[in-house]
Amino acid sequence: MSQDILNILKNAFPSAIVEQETETGDYLEIKPGEWFEIATFLHDTPELHFDSLQCITGVDWGPEAHLEVRYNLHSMKHKHKLEIRIVLDRETPEVPSVEKIWRVADWFEREVYDMYGIVFTGHRDLRRILLPDDWIGWPLRKDYETPETYHGIVVPKIKEEWE
């Protein structure tokens, strides 16, 4: 991420940016509240023109810690990239949906919801996508416990720890 992008964003949204880029890479941490406005700004501003949302990744930092959503953005025109990270509270993980801006987010957000239980507010059709509708729990959370049976079918045990 170039310094220019950071400056433009800082001027437009002075209060929403939490942390600047660090040595590990080009990312920007923001607060969830203004995410929809920031996303619209990133998409519509001609100098930024992030027209392509590459990926949405959910992360769970453990039962004691928080959840996180990461967005990888890319501009087909300017060929620059940006990673946005949003830290969420574990008990009520809510983040505005950006599915109206990038339609690709529709399924990506459903997948993150399916696996982590992160609620994307304003999503038009937020329901499970890969798992059955009646599945209980959020499988990719670190404290998830595999059920013993599903509709009477015994679920085979997997190894607990890597050896």
Binding site: M115, I129, P132
Partner: peptide, 11 residues
């Protein structure tokens, strides 16, 4: 979709 879900990411 999801009929072939094998929990790749969990594995």
């Amino acid at each position: 979709i999801g009929y072939l879900h094998r929990c790749f990411e969990k594995h």
